[in-house]
Design a binder for these strands. Structure first.
Lengths: 199, 199
DNA sequence: AATAATTATGACATAATGTCATTGGAGTGA
DNA sequence: TCACTCCAATGACATTATGTCATAATTATT
């Protein structure tokens, strides 16, 4: 995940390389992108690239992490603000993500990311077990939830995140408005909140 | 999706090629697999391969479809057998898939498929909007469901399939027993059936 | 037997990957 | 000032892959 050599570089050079890589990942999926295009654009020799990163994947996930760092933080904040209300916290998180991925500067980059989404990329992008999810679930108010133990919160979070990801992909696949897209997300959230079977 | 030339081939030759390809996709992900290995194993010249398939992806999805054809059919059958009961139908489908993907001959192949799962592959593998899902949702009994229109069934099916896929991936990621895995799936299904919030 | 249609073949042009030996330069200590 | 150390920079290279294409071989059709 970015070798020390890269991190030692002057910031403007780092930025030049990351910009070139982001440009390439805006043009093509991870599968179709090439190191050649990145180094040409960033004006660095081929050997240097491999001094900085293991390979394409390495820089791909490095850049993605830069863009998703605040998403992971936002969830904890929401849980505090909404007093452990999990559904509200995730709906707010979704709106936050939606604004972020459809911002002028990032839209085409994210379009490419989401149209080629795989499970590994998803794990990098959303809060997950490997990072701070364990701390996060401590913040959830489970009194109103239909579970026997805090452990089962994992199931709920996974379901919610699956729903979020699917709806995000729809943004770029269909040409729905942001409003309509959020409307559907909220409908689905309520569906699993109250149950898909009638009370 | 497999050119006519391939389909004209004698069946044993077709099979030889498909076997070689499946072997390669058991060894490596779509990203890491190579045409070279397939043609070496199948003992056909390079040119022939490209007479039969557009490229690696082409044969990858062709093989996957062979293995998922009956899964898609099974869902309709279940809906008939279970009189439109959607949750029961999907739980049965899950058990059917689980047996299939962990069968002696297919286990390592599917392990590779699932550990490298992406959304495109998922759409190929599970019943989806593009194929007969529209007919399928006609079979669902929506009287007990918490929706206003049959259209919204799509949301429910998507949520259920997302849950299924995540649990299938777990089979190969963690080393859970099949029994424990199904137990968790059923728990999650009941969770969304009754709602994640207490009644 | 002649001709048409289809399939088989492997050499080739092209492009990509990751490595490595060497060069260059900045900082340090004597 | 010099020698030395430590990184960073560099691009040629071996290797491996892709997809194409002209031609040969085989099979079908008349």
């Amino acid at each position: 995940m970015a070798k020390q050599t890269f991190l030692n570089l002057p910031l403007d050079k780092q930025e030049r390389i990351l910009d070139a890589a982001k440009k390439e990942f805006t043009r093509a999926s991870l599968k179709d992108a090439s190191v050649a295009n990145i180094i040409k654009d960033a004006k660095i020799p081929r050997g240097s690239f491999y001094q900085y990163f293991d390979d394409l994947e390495d820089i791909y996930y490095y850049i993605l992490e830069i863009h998703s760092k605040d998403i992971k933080q936002r969830l904890s904040k929401n849980l505090v603000n909404y007093k452990g209300e999990i559904i509200k916290s995730f709906i707010d998180l979704y709106q936050y993500i939606l604004i972020k991925v459809s911002s002028e500067e990032n839209e085409l980059y994210f379009k490419n990311i989401f149209l080629n989404m795989d499970y590994k990329t998803e794990r990098m992008f959303l809060p997950n077990l490997e990072d701070n999810l364990n701390e996060i679930i401590q913040l959830v108010d489970i009194d109103k939830l239909n579970i026997d133990s805090r452990l089962q919160l994992i199931y709920i979070v996974e379901i919610i995140e699956a729903i979020m990801m699917r709806n995000l992909i729809q943004v770029f696949q269909r040409n729905l408005s942001k409003e309509k897209n959020i409307e559907i997300l909220i409908k689905e959230m309520l569906l699993i909140k109250d149950g898909i079977y009638k009370r």
